[in-house]
Amino acid sequence: MRLWTLHPRFLDTKGLTAVWREGLLARKVLRGETRGYTRHPQLIRFRAHPDPLAAIDAYLAAILGEARERGYNFDASKIDERAAAAPIRETTGQLGYEWLHLLDKLRRRAPDRFNDLHGQHPAPHPLFVLEDGDVQDWEIR
């Protein structure tokens, strides 16, 4: 499971589809509707949010918005796309780590996308507000 800190505009088709699917799984976990993934480290920052369900829906709403921009047909009925959530603080180190991780994936599976992004600076998903700091301890490296 990877719930990217990166803005969804950077993801390729496979990445955008995967984060939608994995976000929906995270939503089920946060709602107590699954037995698996309950201790997955990607969920730590959502569980720490004052309203975890609103946070995951706000996260997924931005993914849905990007999908619509690209002409994809993700099922909006699976989330509350009007959910409002306070921003989640995230570190510049975490964003940078994910950026390099994404570029490495794109280098192998989508070289054209890699070439488009190489040299750009990463931006966070709209739910996240950056502060200086290292890669999170929960990140699996």
Rank of each mutant, 00 (worst) to 15 (best):
L127V: 03
I56H: 10
A55Y: 01
D112I: 07
P126E: 02
P41I: 09
G93I: 01
R141D: 09
A61D: 03
W20G: 00
Y37H: 12
T13F: 02
P122K: 01
E139K: 13
R82C: 06
D132M: 11
M1A: 07
P87V: 01
L3W: 00
D116E: 14
A76D: 14
E81H: 11
D134H: 12
L100A: 10
D80E: 12
Q120V: 04
F74W: 07
S77N: 08
A84D: 06
V135W: 07
T92L: 11
Y59R: 02
P124R: 00
A123T: 14
I140W: 06
G32Y: 06
Q94K: 15
E69L: 12
H121M: 08
R113P: 02
L25S: 04
F128N: 00
H49V: 14
L130F: 15
K105Y: 10
P124M: 01
I56V: 15
A123D: 07
H49M: 04
L64W: 12
E98S: 01
L130N: 11
L100C: 06
H7I: 05
R2K: 14
F10E: 00
Q42H: 12
T38D: 06
E139Q: 14
R9W: 06
A83D: 06
L100Q: 14
L100Y: 05
G23P: 05
H49I: 11
D116T: 07
L30E: 10
L100N: 13
G96C: 05
Q120E: 11
I56L: 13
Y59K: 02
F128V: 01
E22N: 10
T38S: 11
Q136R: 15
E33T: 03
R35C: 11
L6D: 01
R47I: 03
R109C: 02
N73A: 13
P41R: 13
D104Y: 06
E98T: 00
R2N: 13
R45Q: 15
G133T: 15
V129H: 10
P124F: 00
A67Q: 03
K28N: 13
H121L: 11
P50E: 08
T92G: 10
Q94G: 12
H101C: 03
A67F: 04
G65F: 07
